[in-house]
Amino acid sequence: MEIIKIVSLGIVATVIIVLLKEIRPEFPMFISLLTGFAIFTMILGELSYVIETLSTLARRVNIEFAYFSTILKIIGMAYIVEFGAQISRDAGQESIAMKIELGGKVLIMVLAIPILLALMELILKILS
């Protein structure tokens, strides 16, 4: 059972972190990083199944596929950014977390701007 593996991994990591916090304050960050990676690799297979299903659904209807894959890309980027920002935050580096989020926001906007402009063009064409 995947879910039991994931949850037990998380609980074990939490217990280790709580225990280690008093003795060696620098270890908990590494452990949370490792746990994050481990859980992520565990769900990677399932995640690709979900994404594939969404893509086939999107392809079946008239929705422009480039558009939908952009949304999936943005969601993926958001996850990666959140992951990095959370780790920085856990280590007490709020400012670095903010910078990571800023980077994520800018890159997401780069993906979103062409769509925004295309939509503007369409609307202006209809109105004119």
Binding site: A78, A85, I108
Partner: peptide, 16 residues
């Protein structure tokens, strides 16, 4: 993901 970036995703979804 829940967090600061959610509103950006919502923006793109709104455009769609």
């Amino acid at each position: 993901p829940k967090g600061n970036l959610k509103k950006y995703i919502r923006l793109v979804i709104g455009l769609l």
